[in-house]
C-alpha cells in the first residue's frame, strides 16, 4: 500500500502545472509555448479523439462501420450520376471518385470540426485552462482515424475496379500527413476568426461547396477546357493534395520529388501560418466567448 502511495505521489509531480509559477506579465513566444502546452496535454488530445469516435456512432446499430459506409454510399451516387448522366468515361471511375471524396471529406470535416469544437468549447474555455489548439488538433486526430479506417473500402473498390494495388500503396501516409497539416492550418485559422465573427462558420459551408467543385473529386482533369479553367484549378491547394492522395493507391505510382515538394510546401506553410495566427489571438478568446 505504502509503495503504491509513493508511486502516485511521484506521478502527480509530473503534472503540467505542478510546482510552476504562472505570471501573466511574462511575454513569451506564444506560438512555441502553445506547441509545448499541446505536447503536455497530449492525453487530452487522445481523450477528445476517443470521445468523438466513441460517441458519434454510439446509438447506431452499425456503429463505426458508418465511417466506411458513408463514403461508399456517396461514391455510389456520384459514380452513377456522373458516369451515366454526364457520360464520364474513365478507367475505374468509382475508385477515382472514392479516393478524391475521402481526401475531400477529411479536409472539410476536419476544418469544420475545428471551428465547431472551439466555439462549442467556449464554455469549457471559460472555466478551466486547456491549450486552445487542443480542439483543432483533436479534430484532426479524429479525422485521421476515420480516414485510415476508410482506406479499407478504398482498397476493395480499387481492386474491384480492376486496378492492381502495388507497393506504392505503402506511401499513403505521406499524402495523409500533408492533408492533416493543411486541414489543421485551415481549421486553426478559421476557428480563430470564427470566435470574432460567427458568420465565418456559416459562410464556410457555402465556400466548401464551391471549393469541392473546384477540386478534382468528381471531374477528371482531361475533360476540363484549357485556358482559364486549368489556371484556376492550379491555384487551388486541394488540387495538389488530392492528386497526391490518389497516386499511391488509385494510380499505383510513386509520387515524384516535385509532387511531394509542392504538396508538402503547401501543407507546411498553411500549418505554420494557421498556428501563428491562432496562437497570437488565443489570449483574447476568453474575452469574446
Amino acid at each position: 500500500m505504502r509503495g503504491l502511495f509513493n508511486k502516485v505521489k511521484s506521478a502527480e509531480v509530473q503534472s503540467p502545472t505542478v510546482g510552476s509559477v504562472y505570471d501573466s506579465s511574462l511575454k513569451r513566444s506564444t506560438a512555441l509555448e502553445e506547441l509545448q502546452e499541446i505536447f503536455l496535454y497530449r492525453n487530452l488530445v487522445f481523450q477528445f479523439v476517443r470521445r468523438d469516435i466513441l460517441t458519434r456512432y454510439k446509438r447506431s446499430v452499425l456503429g463505426i462501420a458508418w465511417t466506411m459506409l458513408t463514403p461508399l454510399g456517396t461514391m455510389l451516387i456520384l459514380t452513377i450520376v456522373f458516369s451515366k448522366a454526364f457520360g464520364i468515361k474513365t478507367e475505374g471511375y468509382a475508385a477515382y471518385v472514392l479516393s478524391g471524396l475521402m481526401a475531400w471529406t477529411f479536409f472539410s470535416q476536419t476544418s469544420n470540426a475545428a471551428i465547431i469544437h472551439l466555439v462549442w468549447g467556449g464554455t469549457l474555455l471559460n472555466r478551466i485552462y486547456v491549450p486552445r489548439t487542443v480542439f483543432a488538433v483533436s479534430a484532426t486526430g479524429t479525422g485521421l482515424v476515420n480516414l485510415t479506417i476508410s482506406l479499407i473500402p478504398l482498397i476493395i473498390v480499387t481492386l474491384f475496379s480492376g486496378i492492381p494495388i502495388g507497393w506504392p500503396a505503402l506511401l499513403i501516409p505521406i499524402p495523409m500527413l500533408f492533408l492533416a497539416m493543411f486541414s489543421l492550418g485551415v481549421g486553426l485559422f478559421l476557428s480563430a476568426m470564427a470566435i470574432y465573427y460567427a458568420d465565418i462558420a456559416e459562410m464556410y459551408q457555402v465556400i466548401l461547396t464551391g471549393w469541392l467543385y473546384l477540386s478534382p473529386v468528381i471531374w477528371v482533369e482531361n475533360i476540363l477546357p484549357k485556358g482559364f479553367a486549368a489556371l484556376l484549378i492550379r491555384l487551388n491547394p486541394m488540387y495538389y493534395l488530392i492528386n497526391l492522395f490518389r497516386m499511391p493507391i488509385y494510380e499505383g505510382v510513386v509520387p515524384t520529388f516535385t509532387d511531394i515538394a509542392i504538396s508538402g510546401g503547401i501543407a507546411l506553410v498553411t500549418l505554420v501560418v494557421g498556428w501563428l495566427f491562432f496562437s497570437s489571438r488565443a489570449d483574447e478568446f476568453a474575452y469574446r466567448v
Partner: peptide, 15 residues
Amino acid sequence: VLKPTEGRVVVRGRV
C-alpha cells in the same frame, strides 16, 4: 483562463 488587460497576476502551483 483570462489574461488581464493591465497589471499582473502571479499564481504559484497547480490550480
